[in-house]
Design a protein around this nucleic acid. Structure first.
Lengths: 156, 156
DNA sequence: CTCGATGCAAATGCTTTGCAGAAAA
DNA sequence: TTTTCTGCAAAGCATTTGCATCGAG
């Protein structure tokens, strides 16, 4: 059998993301290199919010020779083709997450352990729209981050 | 007469803010210097969201010799004593705004002209609280920014 | 007179870019 | 072979700090 039907489909099928990237690169005349394949693969496989350094570390685990600039440029490429989002949380480092086209989500961040929980709240989204309209703004995007202490850290 | 009662009280009475700062500095054994008085005065008098460079420019209009580091350190001081908030919007620069203790507010930012409008929405605040509770988080702070196109820029 | 504050300039931390050599197409 | 990509190292840029000097207390 060529395709395995999974009982519990992964949140993001790594293959689908890779296909989208490949299509984008072909369309733009960009080259498929071993580094781009490696970096995108480790990023697509790892669910989370990673800094360049973290993606670099994951990539170097499989190929110690990859350079920082390559990871940097590959992440920019993923952002450009809409497969990754760039985020800045409390600190100064830029983090990347896999972009989901279907749903908007925001973040709940533990200020103790830095854990990041994603949430989706349609009511808040709707109220944001209403609020923007009230001020005459055409809403393009938003950033909504809640900082607090997570259950695990509260009990310590 | 020593005190002037104003018909239209300023949003933030510069004098009150200055008094709070003075009290804080005395409490901490910090010195009242001409630079600190100048920087805090221009910042308290100017309503808005200013970067270090902008505060520096305002201060230098009155005293060309003030240094960047002094403004930097004075703004940190204002943040430390709760009289200013530090914010990062879309770009890389840090901006400061006068902290109001009574009300929480968030921002609506025009991506064209960079105009920043402040808003307050109790319903959204309440929903944030509910959401944090749902995840077991004790909510400490939040960042809520809406990016869009303001009425003036839509008509251009 | 003492110790904190200032202002310069240098250091830092992260991001971005120039360029010579490497590797896709 | 041509053109893009890589990896290093250097440049940018906003922020932060060390230090000699200045000035408030």
């Amino acid at each position: 059998m060529a395709q395995v039907i999974q009982d519990q489909p992964a949140e993001h099928a790594v293959g689908d993301l890779t296909d989208e990237l490949t299509a984008y690169m072909e369309r733009k005349g960009l080259r498929s290199t071993s580094q781009r394949r490696l970096v995108s693969e480790v990023f697509f496989s790892a669910e989370g919010h990673y800094s360049i350094d973290e993606v670099l570390a994951m990539a170097r685990a499989k190929d110690p020779k990859v350079g920082y600039a390559t990871v940097y440029r590959t992440m920019k490429l993923l952002v450009a083709c809409g497969l990754a989002n760039e985020r800045q949380f409390g600190d100064t480092v830029t983090r990347f997450e896999i972009a989901r086209h279907d749903s908007h989500h925001d973040h709940l961040i533990c200020i103790e352990c830095k854990r990041i929980v994603e949430f989706e709240d349609d009511e808040i989204e709707a109220q944001q729209e209403a609020l923007a309209k009230r001020y005459g703004f055409r809403l393009v995007s938003h950033k909504h981050e809640l900082y607090g202490v997570c259950p695990a850290c509260r009990d310590k």
